[in-house]
Amino acid sequence: MALLVLSFNLRISYLSIMASQEIEALTQALARLPGLGPRSARRAVLHLMKKREGSLLPLLSALKAVSETLTTCSTCGNVDTTDPCAICLDPRRDAKSLCVVEEVADLWALDRSRLFPGRYHVLGGRLSALEGVRPEDLSIDQLIARVTAGGIDEVVLAMNATLEGQTTAHFIAERLEDKPVRLTQLAHGMPVGGEMDYLDEGTLAQALRARRPIG
């Protein structure tokens, strides 16, 4: 019995000397990030410790710089280190086109494609009666004010193709219908590389409705 207790105590002390409190705190902080669990966080910490000069210090300075300057753009709602954000400040962007998205992640996804030359407006979510998200909880009034201020010819509603996303799009379309702008919406239907056999009937029906002449 005494041997058992001794071995247990030894294991505890071995675990506690494996990593100091600071390293353990870093592991726990990383483990809370999306896509990482305790195991992958531990691997990341080990990597950072091994490559102190090449990985840890640059990461540290990048985190510090971002945390000191991180802000939300007061014009479009994007998250950046300047206000207005880099997209709103870019003179090469077409100021006459505005794309409305639900979240910052959607803005980044759309902008990665570099297909939309205009500017953006981030709503900060979608209308949801069940979750208690009302129009006043989103930046819809700011959007209306941006459009009313003039200089915008087209508003692209790029909401998710979900019931809540479409409800939000319809609500915004109603609010903007008396404004002198062209309202458009992203197409719904066949995804690139999609095979008919694997598509659900809802997507197929949308694709059939949105069919267009060839040539």
Binding site: T167, H170, A173, D200, Q206
Partner: peptide, 23 residues
């Protein structure tokens, strides 16, 4: 999936009704 009602979420009135009934 047995029956998809997703094609109707693109219509303002139908989508509001589907949303309200399920909510």
């Amino acid at each position: 999936l047995v029956t998809s009602r997703a094609p109707w979420i693109g219509e303002p009135l139908a989508s509001a009704a589907l949303d309200w009934a399920t909510t």
